[in-house]
Design a protein around this nucleic acid. Structure first.
Length: 634
RNA sequence: GCCGUUAUAGCUCAGUAGGUAGAGCGUAUCCUUGGUAAGGAUAAGGUCACCGGUUCAAAUCCGGUUAACGGCUCCA
């Protein structure tokens, strides 16, 4: 017998050599039915594995991320089987589980179309119904290479050849189909109850643009059809909230062929933008920041000095002025540094916090552009903090707190990632080590949980990234804090210390919104265009019932707009229900209807977004209420 | 940049054997003065993304360019 410690801490005995499926059965019938895989001493394995020694066992169902991965990974094998059944000769790339689904890469003469996906889905359903068992087997490296060479699976052969020597090579078979795979898998194809193939896209073999482009089929799967329906609903909801669509509908911004990746902001979009910038300015002023503005085009020599020429050139735009080379700035720091250097600084002046809403241009690949989320010019809410080494931790903590304050105002949750030295970077290892541990210390002092991203830092320093979570659970990188010992060195930045000697300050580069453009996109999708009152481009829309109420509507409108409330009066000769419908679709927070009754009593009939008709309110009282709500930034 | 798809009126889209274009919404004008999500009529609006080719004839077939979309790569 072996002792099995279960998740709840209880211990059960099973005969040595029992399978994990039997363990699940021993716990409960229901669990055995929903079990997809198991975790033995922390390692995820298939349910057909046997227990030879005492172990801690956790049975994994679809409720756990590992269970989901096992199911999706198994579904990718089913996809591969279906594709090879329907399109013989298709070669297999890789087919992993990913967040929310799976994919499989294929090399095929045939170009897969959306119609093919339906056919493939049907074939997958057939495979599921056959309820083939996923059988694991281990073979030697030579046998594996021979096996896949005979089948013409050159990608699999390449994978095997690149596997480390000490690793066991395993294959999984379901019916006629065999694939190289580390596993684990669910017990049989019948466990997959709901499959949806989503789209086809090109993907380079092993992610390198030097390799052949394969066709990647994306899909997802669930153990219940209701779960699939819920997921598809979420996908639809994300489409409905797409900022490119809402941005056009609400007349906020546009894109034109004349400037791919260069957004045009319309009056309504500018209101939102300016509100974000005003809020930013007021907060930064409060937290000891000064503001500067530096030029967009600067001499090439500056970029050579900063290291951008060497490390960032591929992303930059260049021009010539009077036969001299210039670059359009991709970052604000070198310009900001020139401002720092315009005078001598005493240690008493530090830290100096210099903010800049700086327009940067970066050459992104044409295929990477995506609405406001990925553009070629954007405004960073940048700031550079010049400080003493002894001030690093304190300043980092202050920035982390400020970021936290901003995100809370918008109701965002977020998580934090720490990125370390990348391959293409400059500076001494000791500096990187010092900078990285300072970031770590600040996070730990603040009690912030974080995940480490090795090799993902900026070329001049390690960074902390803030990833927002929106209402659909998607995450977006926005704020970033980078600690930099390199630029002060490159630009010979100094301050005069207590000893009267020149010393080297340290720099922080940081953003909170990240990019105003991207932040607007995220807000638009997060709120589905129904912006909180303080951001809403039109805060109040007044609808006169007929033309004899127009003058009164304007009188109320003027009273509000004189208090800086953004008001529009809809004086078209349309029926009231028609005007309400339009204002409602435009997601205006306060719709005020004025007719005879209201005119008589100096009131307005309030229709509040999301709540409907609230009845009549006194004009002045409502104005106060609206001002309060704007102030509270709800 | 690469792979795939797409491009017809301001917007959403028809146009199914190649014979120089249609609808709904929106816009303008007129009628309607209407109380909580679409009142009616009339009209204007398109060298069918751009360049080239095949053809007596191209929105439609072919080639190229551009842009958008879905991904890969990259990132604020």
């Amino acid at each position: 017998m072996v002792k099995v410690t279960l998740q709840d801490g209880s211990v059960k005995e099973f005969p040595q050599g029992s399978t994990l499926a039997e363990v699940a059965e021993g716990i409960s019938r229901g669990l055995a039915k929903s079990a997809l895989a198991a975790k033995v001493n922390g390692t995820v394995v298939g349910l057909s594995n046997t227990l030879e020694n005492d172990a801690a066992v956790e049975i994994l169902t679809f409720a756990s991320p590992e269970g989901q991965d096992a199911l999706r990974h198994s579904t990718s094998h089913i996809l591969a089987q279906a594709v090879q059944n329907l399109f013989p000769g298709t070669k297999l790339g890789i087919g992993p589980a990913i967040a929310n689904g799976f994919y499989y890469d294929f090399d095929s003469e045939h170009i897969f179309t959306p119609e093919d996906l339906e056919t493939i889905e049907k074939e997958m359903d057939r495979v599921v119904k056959e309820n083939y068992t996923f059988e694991r087997s281990e073979i030697s490296r030579d046998e594996a290479i021979k096996f896949f060479t005979e089948r013409g699976e050159n990608y699999k052969v390449e994978l095997i050849e690149n596997l480390p020597n000490d690793v066991a090579i395993s294959m999984y078979r379901q019916g006629e189909f065999v694939d190289l795979c580390a596993g684990p898998h669910v017990p049989s194809t019948g466990k997959v109850k709901a499959i949806k193939l989503l789209n086809v896209a090109g993907a380079y073999w092993r992610g390198s643009e030097k390799n052949k482009m394969l066709q990647r089929i994306y899909g997802t799967s669930f153990t219940k059809t209701a779960e699939l329906a819920e997921y598809l609903f979420k996908v639809e909801e994300a489409k409905r909230r797409d900022h490119r669509k809402i941005g056009a509908e609400l007349d906020m911004f546009s894109f034109h062929e004349e400037g791919p990746g260069f957004p045009f902001f319309h009056p309504k979009g500018m209101i939102l933008r300016n509100e974000l910038e005003d809020f930013w300015r007021s907060q930064h002023k409060k937290h000891g920041y000064q503001e500067i503005k530096t030029p967009i085009i600067l001499n090439r020599s500056l970029w050579e000095q900063s290291g951008h020429w060497e490390h960032y050139r591929d992303n930059m735009y260049f021009t010539q002025i009077d036969e001299t080379d210039y670059a359009v700035k991709p970052m604000n720091c070198p310009g900001g540094i020139l401002v720092y250097k315009t005078k001598l600084h005493s240690y008493r002046d530090l830290p100096i916090r210099m903010g800049e809403l700086g327009l940067v241009h970066r050459h992104e690949l044409s295929g990477a552009l995506h609405g406001l989320l990925r553009v070629r010019n954007f405004t960073q809410d940048d700031a550079h903090i010049y400080m003493l080494k002894s001030q690093i931790i304190d300043e980092l903590i202050k920035v982390i707190s400020l970021v936290d304050h901003f995100y809370k105002v918008f109701g965002f949750d977020y998580h934090v990632e720490l990125s370390t030295r990348p391959k293409d970077s400059m500076g001494a290892d000791e500096d990187w080590e010092m900078a990285t541990s300072a970031l770590r210390e600040a996070l730990e002092t603040k009690g912030v949980d974080y995940k480490v991203n090795p090799g993902d830092g900026a070329f001049y320093g390690p960074k902390i990234d803030f990833h927002l979570r929106d209402c659909l659970g998607r995450t977006w990188q926005c704020g970033t804090i980078q600690l930099d010992f390199q630029m002060p060195e490159k630009f010979d930045l100094t301050y005069v210390g207590e000893d009267g000697q020149k010393h080297r300050p340290v720099m922080i580069h940081r953003t909170i919104y990240g990019s105003i453009e991207r932040f607007i996109a995220i807000l638009t999708e997060h709120y589905a265009g129904a912006f909180p009152l303080w951001l809403a481009p039109v805060q109040v829309k007044i609808l006169p019932i007929s033309d004899r109420h127009e003058a009164y509507a304007h009188q109320v409108g003027n009273e509000y707009s004189s208090q800086d409330i953004r008001v529009e009066v809809d004086e078209r000769r349309e029926k009231i229900s028609y005007k309400i419908r339009e204002a409602q679709i435009a997601k205006v927070p306060y719709i005020l209807i004025v007719g005879d009754k209201e005119m008589e009593n100096n009131t307005v009939a309030v229709r509040y977004r999301g709540e409907g008709d609230l009845g009549a309110k006194d004009v002045a009282d409502l104005g106060q209420q609206i001002l309060q709500e704007i102030k509270r930034k709800q």
